[in-house]
């Protein structure tokens, strides 16, 4: 993935600045039970040609952040209460509904997890792909269909000409996800957000789909936000990683540094809980406890009830993002201890 890393160092947009720059984003869900603070001040940036992997458990706010960027948050109950989503330096949150709609799909697109439910069951894939061209580009239905076939060929769906009239349920899981990718790629957007694009697939198919996505990204020099909880996928394709916990970023780092020496106990816990061949037969490590209830996020560092390094300060003071190095940051008061400690977290108690 060296090529992608090289590209990220190139100047990316005429206005300077990164392609996408999310600043201090806050999202909350106002439910009957109370206000769930799903995203609490997220900052991250993606350049053209760069892949940012956003990692975290379910409920960590990684998908909600993505929905807020796309502008597809269910509102109500979801509201962006603070922050900026700068796309080429322009704040999308200040755009009108219609202006925002024209960005969606055309300049930034999203790939969803489960293609079977994310595709419309009663429209054939040709219609669903072609719709991008008829709506955004004003093409005729016939031309749009031809474009759809072209797209399907580009994502290497065999017999695209015949299959363009098939319905989503008539495709295999992998082929369906390729349709999903084709739909996101249709108008050659500058940014793609892939929300767990391979989670619903067989392991063998996962690699193929991931490779395809990475290849298309290189070809079109797109920015890619890859939301996942699969650390294996991340290592292969991502340039940098942002780890999220309880709606905050707890660690950001270039991908290889994080595997070598995680600077946050949560990241460390995640890495230690990957099954490894050389530890066969041993009990698999799991981070103790459960992710916090977003209605009642613990005071101080949200991770402290589950953290092996927790001290008194962690219960009272929310850790800022400490600079670990030129390119790394960690929201842990004890990042130095964490980074210098290479024993698995499980041995320390």
């Amino acid at each position: 993935m060296a090529t992608a890393a090289e590209m990220s160092t190139e100047p990316v947009s005429a206005r300077g600045g990164p392609l996408l720059d999310v600043r201090n984003l806050h999202v909350e869900f106002r439910t009957r039970e109370g206000v769930a603070r799903a995203v609490n001040g997220v900052d991250y940036a993606v350049d053209a040609g760069e892949t940012l992997a956003v990692l975290g458990e379910s409920g960590s706010g990684k998908s909600v952040t993505a929905q807020a960027i796309m502008g597809i948050l269910d509102s109500p109950p979801g509201f962006v209460t603070q922050g900026q989503v700068l796309f080429h330096g322009e704040d999308l949150l200040k755009f009108g509904t219609e202006q925002r709609r024209k960005v969606r799909g055309a300049r930034m697109a999203m790939i969803f997890q489960d293609a079977l439910s994310a595709l419309n069951p009663v429209l054939n894939v040709g219609e669903q792909l072609g719709e991008m061209f008829t709506v955004h580009r004003g093409l005729s239905r016939k031309d749009a269909r031809a474009k759809a076939v072209e797209l399907m060929e580009r994502v290497r769906i065999p017999a695209a000409k015949e299959r363009v009239r098939s319905y989503p349920h008539q495709f295999s899981g992998g082929m369906r996800q390729r349709v999903m990718i084709a739909m996101a790629m249709a108008l050659e957007p500058e940014l793609i957000i892939a929300d767990e694009p391979t989670t619903a697939l067989d392991v063998t198919v996962q690699a193929q789909v991931m490779d395809l996505l990475a290849e298309l990204q290189r070809e079109y020099n797109m920015g890619l936000i890859l939301i996942t909880h699969d650390l294996g996928v991340v290592a292969d394709v991502a340039d940098k990683i942002a780890v999220m916990y309880a709606g905050r970023i707890v660690e950001t780092s270039p991908v290889h540094d994080i595997y070598r020496a995680p600077a946050h106990p949560y990241t460390k816990g995640l890495l230690d809980s990957i099954p490894r061949v050389d530890q066969k037969g041993q009990e698999l490590y799991a981070i103790k406890g459960l992710p916090p209830n977003l209605l009642h996020i613990p005071p101080g560092c949200a991770f402290h009830p589950r953290c092996p390094l927790a001290q008194d300060i962690c219960r009272t003071k929310i850790p800022p993002l400490y600079r670990v190095s030129e390119v790394r940051a960690s929201a842990c008061h004890f990042w130095k201890e964490c980074i210098g400690d290479d024993r698995p977290a499980a041995d320390k108690t």
Binding site: G105, S117, L123, E131, V135, M183
Partner: peptide, 26 residues
């Protein structure tokens, strides 16, 4: 609440089209 409707929104389709072609059709 269906996923495919969220997809339709993410595709940047106009509201009218989302309702008639995607929501009502189903």
């Amino acid at each position: 609440r269906a996923d495919y409707l969220r997809t339709a929104v993410a595709k940047g389709l106009p509201r009218r089209r989302i309702i008639i072609r995607h929501l009502l059709r189903n």
